[in-house]
């Protein structure tokens, strides 16, 4: 089995990757703004944790800085600013109505599969785990896009956009795990 041949660190990174996708799904399902921001902060935290883990495991000290910046900006500053905006705009009691939540979820699951098959033929990413991790990042990007498409609120669009950015960042930081 693939997973069992990996080191515990590699397992942990893959585990975190799965959790990042999961937060993306939760964001798709969340119709209130404050919890949505909370989820975005969690995604940022998972990102920072992954980067820190890679930095520790591969001993790249510059990744620690990256992790710290992620932690500061994505889990603290941006969510805090979004919160303030929402309170200033007085939209925090609004509940967005989701059109066809089950269709959106089905589409989201298909996007995850799709990203997996897109990444499959990329030969250069020789290490299997690395390829899977890239698939996860692509999935996060696509889910962020789906979030932007299906919602109307400006704040949700901002969060969707930044979650796309999260996906790209994740791809970059996770690459360090399997490059020499």
């Amino acid at each position: 089995m693939g997973l069992m041949q990996q080191t515990i660190f590699e397992q942990a990174v893959l585990f975190l990757a799965a959790l990042v996708v999961f937060t993306s799904f939760l964001m798709l399902a969340q119709r209130r703004l404050f919890p949505l921001i909370g989820l975005f902060a969690w995604q940022g935290l998972l990102l920072a944790a992954t980067t820190a883990l890679v930095a520790y495991n591969r001993d790249y000290s510059h990744l620690y800085i990256s992790a710290l910046i992620t932690l500061a900006i994505k889990t603290l500053v941006i969510p805090w600013m979004l919160r303030r905006w929402i309170i200033q705009l007085d939209v925090h009691r609004e509940v967005e109505s989701l059109l066809y939540p089950s269709y959106v979820m089905t589409a989201a699951s298909s996007l995850v599969l799709f990203s997996y098959y897109v990444v499959l033929p990329i030969e250069q990413l020789s290490a299997l785990a690395s390829r899977n991790a890239i698939a996860v990042s692509l999935a996060v990007v696509l889910l962020g896009m789906l979030l932007m498409i299906t919602r109307r609120q400006a704040v949700t669009h901002v969060i969707g956009f930044m979650s796309i950015e999260n996906g790209l960042f994740f791809a970059v930081s996770i690459r360090w795990m399997w490059t020499n």
Binding site: M1, G2, L3, L14, A17, A18, V21, F22, F25, A29, P101, S102, M105, S109, V112, L113, Y116, L128, N132, A135, V136
Partner: peptide, 21 residues
């Protein structure tokens, strides 16, 4: 329960994508 289904489905997906050779 749709969410419960989604979780189980994600379990299946992450098994296929991340865990299998």
């Amino acid at each position: 329960l749709g969410f419960a289904y989604l979780l189980s489905l994600l379990g299946m997906l992450s098994h296929v994508i991340l865990e299998v050779n």
